[in-house]
Write a protein that binds this DNA or RNA. Structure first.
Lengths: 330, 330
DNA sequence: AATTTTTTTGCAAACGTTTGCGACAAAATT
DNA sequence: AATTTTGTCGCAAACGTTTGCAAAAAAATT
């Protein structure tokens, strides 16, 4: 079965292609009666405009690209949900690709985006990828790039992210409030700027406001790793009384050890994490967490994208604030 | 900055567009020397073929569409991962859209797919959507549709799914093995065929092999709902000793109640679920589950898609088998 | 009735590719 | 030396739109 085209409609109605085209988009030049006829036929033959022809002609696709490290991540999920929602409202489709934390995949994804002439891309850096020239090239080709969450230090780009320092400080505040004595703070992938920001803010705050609290710092980039770390620190009877988990993955690993050692929360040990809330609420008592909303970040990112596409270059770094959610773990 | 096109290359090299086109794809008609020149220039101007022009000309895109109820779901995540992996290897890009369990969104997503002339779609039905004419129309337009997981009863379509009956029976087997007396089995959305299949298989097996076990059946389509259901059944001292959860969402709700009532697993109550394993392993002891692998399902779906695209109509229903994973909850 | 204005429609080029066919030269065959 | 084959390349049409501009028809103005 052949697709319905403008030409076909035109033939059947004894009209020119241009008239049909204009009728379909309510151009004031076209009379109401012909508009009606055209719409009717288009309906019954369920005409779908060929997006490829349109893009070829107009040189602008209605597709936005999103690169995330992984979609099996509640934070990115909600980010994508927000972007998709806004996109739908603005007539855009969203193409989602995952880098799987692999710079190589990131590159090949970018290539797919270029080939499909996306009109903008939201990018979250995969671990150690710092080949920013590719992104720079996209910007030069007038394809706006909005980095989110894991953003480059480079300030030639538009960036949106969580208020990482505030997150870390909020967590620190609540640890102090608990009268903690010995704290284990586990952060994520060391090479990421997001990790560095959170860690240094946390560290500084702890030193300044609670210098007598003993803090151990560690890094983990997987649940398994976090589990082992926790085992090491909790085992040697060093009276660890509080643990801070920077990510859901870390929290999961830490909880495995806590469950295994049958530690009581919050009496034996206090737990606090940074999360969107899904995982923390699975445990009993619920884990207290500093909430970071991928959803809000997505909304913000979309606004930035639109601004970039419409107007000039708004090269800014915007942040979304966080809030503390009390579970029963502190 | 304007994009590099064949025309531009042709001009700079004093060649015709067709020659450049052929050179770029190693057509035997073109001499080695010109091929080299063309490739060199294309490289330095980083030429990217315009996918839209290609599709317009060849009437075939290299994009596959995937519709899932939600991407924040580990089962679908792994399904997508598999499809994406295979797609990448075969030169396809994947466009992921979520229906959010909303038939209206499903429709609008389908429209986006049609407009972008995807060359195939993987579809998972959103709850109560049974407007199959749309899918039938796609098939008529020679856009193969492969349904997965939640598939229509209609046998005009290609379908891949888990061996739902086997899953349910495996769960039932292990419930019997536990010497259960009173069982609560909570299934998902009642209108879905996947639910019906699992439920009737479960029910039949229980009747035939353990008629003395008292089973209560219930439906839930959210964690909250499952939580309440569990509260109702566990509260009234009717000595409930085992609960079966058909989905992760249900398990989460059930576990909330179990934690709240401080029931001990597995002594007070046994728990078994159907899952890919992520959520069950968060609890302590780990929840025993029948494993369903979205990843394998994705691989299978892709194979079916390719078969549909290449050859004729392979209208079959294929299933992926499951296996039981022992936690400590039974 | 002749002119101007307004309304409605069509022509044709362009977007960047692919591809059947023909053209031309060089090489191989007679 | 005349012919055929082979190796390289270009012409031009087509894919389905959009849009500036011209044209034709109808309505309004003199």
């Amino acid at each position: 079965m052949t697709n319905t085209t403008l030409k076909l409609l035109a033939q059947q109605l004894q009209l020119s292609i241009s008239t049909v085209s204009r009728a379909l988009k309510d151009h004031p030049d076209i009379s109401a009666s012909t508009k009606a006829k055209v719409h009717a036929l288009a309906q019954s033959l369920d005409y779908e405009p060929n997006a490829y022809a349109i893009q070829l002609r107009t040189q602008s696709s209605k597709i936005l690209g999103v690169i995330v490290p992984a979609i099996s991540n509640l934070f990115y999920d909600s980010f994508i949900a927000a972007v998709e929602e806004e996109s739908r409202n603005n007539g855009y489709a969203v193409m989602i690709l995952q880098s799987s934390h692999n710079p190589e995949n990131e590159l090949s994804n970018l290539k797919i985006f270029r080939q499909n002439r996306v009109s903008g891309v939201f990018a979250c850096l995969s671990s150690s990828s710092e080949n920013l020239e590719v992104y720079q090239k996209m910007n030069e080709r007038e394809i706006p790039v909005v980095f989110f969450d894991i953003v480059p230090k480079d300030n030639r780009f538009t960036k949106v992210r969580m208020a990482d320092e505030r997150c870390a400080i909020m967590a620190a505040e609540n640890i102090i409030k608990r009268n903690a004595k010995k704290v284990l703070a586990i952060f994520g992938d060391e090479v990421l700027s997001i990790t560095q920001k959170r860690k240094s803010a946390f560290q500084k705050f702890m030193q300044d406001f609670a210098p007598k609290i003993h803090c151990s710092y560690a890094h983990a980039n997987s649940s398994l790793h976090a589990e082992e770390l926790m085992k090491k620190f909790a085992d040697k009877k060093n009276k660890l009384d509080t643990v801070f988990c920077m990510t859901d993955e870390i929290l999961i690993g830490v909880m495995k050890t806590i469950q295994e050692l049958q530690l009581k929360i919050p009496s034996d040990i206090g737990v606090i994490s940074i999360s969107n809330g899904f995982i923390p609420n699975l445990y009993y008592p619920h884990i207290s967490y500093v909430e970071t909303s991928g959803y809000e970040l997505g909304k913000l990112a979309f606004i930035q994208m639109m601004a970039n596409m419409k107007g000039g270059k708004t090269l800014t770094e915007l942040t979304v604030d966080a809030k503390f959610v009390e579970g029963g773990s502190m």
